[in-house]
Design a protein around this nucleic acid. Structure first.
Lengths: 310, 310
DNA sequence: GCTTTCATGTCTATACATTGTCTAGCTTTC
DNA sequence: GAAAGCTAGACAATGTATAGACATGAAAGC
């Protein structure tokens, strides 16, 4: 796979930084020094763009660019997730614990409806694993486990709600500094009517935000007409839906069809969640795209973004 | 071990203290003496920011900064847990002239389903008005307005959801810094079955958190049995419910009675929200307390806390 | 009761640092 | 040939630092 290279204009759009700023950051702070073409044009790699997105977010959040321009990229990422360590004296997290042990710990707190203990597990993990590590290795498995245990009756509403609230809080906080760039396209995220579990949608929302999208998040179980109205009002470039449970809702296909009819022609509908495949026929009918994992999502979003600019 | 350093602007945002105050606290009281950059700029560490957050909270609560500025950080943390009940009569209506205009601005963004614009209004207001100013002068009126406009049909689900999501995010972020001490009592917050609007509950949750309670937040519309189960599991010292809309739910009184029966004897039930009074008879029957405003809530919580310790 | 003192937040003035934007002239692309 | 990219330098707007003055309210002293 040969690494794709991007010209400065594209980078400017993705990061929300003007070409002027990109050049000056390079000259003055050596923040990112891209390769050049034969004719001396800057050619950025995907990694460099991600780095610039981080820098842009931190700069907007109040960090002086001169102070952070030379930090390694992973440190920038953990700065983004940097939260006031709730641990001042006690709680020795001597060696960073493995993702598995953290998962077990987290799952125990979920079963105990212990919101605050769960936060104490997730919050430091945002630093030790990084935001993407946190989501991929802890939160995604946790959401799967919660969904499965819910269906099997092992846990009930209270457990699910308590966990949802904390996970939402942690994810939103972690992706907060990324929020705004002027040119960012809008992505509308929600779950269709009848889908009460919102964690999948939250995950999608935060991921999109981390990649520079302006996200409008509308919570769970929203009627098709309302989704369409909000998408039009926000001039959204795409709509994301999460479908987790139930997997056999007779009303849902109708909702989806109604949504397609109410949306502008051709507006992409991305559908994810563990039960998305259960409605595959309808999804195909409305020309939606099923997303199977977060990487698929980011790829899809990147494509959409490029299409728009071209 | 990352040695991330933060500039004064960012510290100001996180602590709610102006850069002026930060400098004067350093010069006069040696409260926190950050390292300097090569060019003499202050660079704060994470620990120093946490310390300043504690000092800011205590100072706002009435402690003289000169008396506490030299205490070790862990002692400050334990002081937070024993905050005296806040001066309620005083320090009100210090309404900065911009509060009204901010409200208008915020309301416009709500009507436009423009999540990101709303965040851009509320987030800076958390600094300029302070967290209590933000809640009392912006968010409470906004919630009232949203509730009223909802009932009159002026706005619909999408508007309410978009606003809820952002307000939740802002409030949770604003109440985040307060590290809880181990001895903090638990307060369970939710809305009863059928009450779909969660903003009132979020407000209550954040307020309690700011006063040192350990809050378990369970989102909207939770069945009585689940509420009770969670409260018992968490050994909650009180349960808080928000009732906003509808004001004429025939099922609700039954839910409340069921909740009382399932809870441990004498466990206080605090009920707030614009429609709480519509169920006054039932509230009385279950020996609940109607809370009419945030000050009433903090007072009530302070009482409960004292009772426990005595 | 009235003044004095102290604690504390706010403000001013002045200097320097940081950072985004602009201009000018040249080169490449389409 | 027009549009966009490149370098280098200049400029303006903000942000930050220091030192000191001022305002206010509470406690102390007369």
């Amino acid at each position: 796979m040969l690494a794709a290279r991007f010209p400065i204009k594209l980078v400017s759009q993705r990061t929300g930084l003007s070409p002027h700023v990109l050049r000056v950051w390079e000259r003055r702070y050596r923040a990112v020094v891209p390769a050049r073409s034969d004719t001396n044009r800057r050619l950025y790699t995907e990694e460099e763009i991600v780095r610039l997105e981080l820098l842009a977010a931190l700069s907007k959040a109040g960090h002086g660019i001169g102070n952070i321009s030379l930090l390694p990229t992973d440190e920038l990422a953990s700065l983004i997730g940097s939260l006031p360590s709730p641990t001042i004296a006690g709680r020795e997290t001597s060696s960073s614990p493995s993702a598995e042990s953290l998962f077990d710990e987290a799952w125990t707190t979920v079963r105990n409806i212990d919101s605050n203990a769960l936060r104490d597990v997730l919050q430091p993990a945002a630093v030790s694993l990084g935001v993407s590590g946190l989501t991929q290795e802890l939160i995604v498995p946790l959401i799967d486990r919660i969904g499965a245990s819910w269906e099997s009756g092992e846990i009930s509403v209270a457990e699910e709600r308590a966990a949802s609230a904390v996970i939402k809080e942690v994810l939103f906080t972690a992706s907060r500094p990324f929020a705004q760039t002027a040119s960012a396209p809008n992505f509308l995220v929600t779950t269709p009517s009848g889908q009460l579990h919102e964690l999948g949608a939250v995950l999608v929302a935060c991921n999109a935000r981390r990649y520079g999208w302006e996200v409008t998040y509308l919570g769970p179980s929203l009627p098709a007409a309302e989704i369409a109205r909000a998408a039009i009002r926000n001039q959204s470039l795409a709509v994301g839906l999460s479908i987790i449970y139930p997997a056999d809702d007779a009303e849902l296909p109708g909702e989806l069809i109604q949504l397609r009819q109410a949306l502008p022609d051709g507006l992409p509908i991305l559908i994810g969640g563990r039960s998305a495949h259960a409605y595959a026929a309808t999804v195909k009918e409305i020309d939606g795209t099923i997303i199977t994992n977060l990487n698929g999502l980011t790829e899809m979003l990147a494509n959409l973004r490029e299409q728009r600019t071209s």
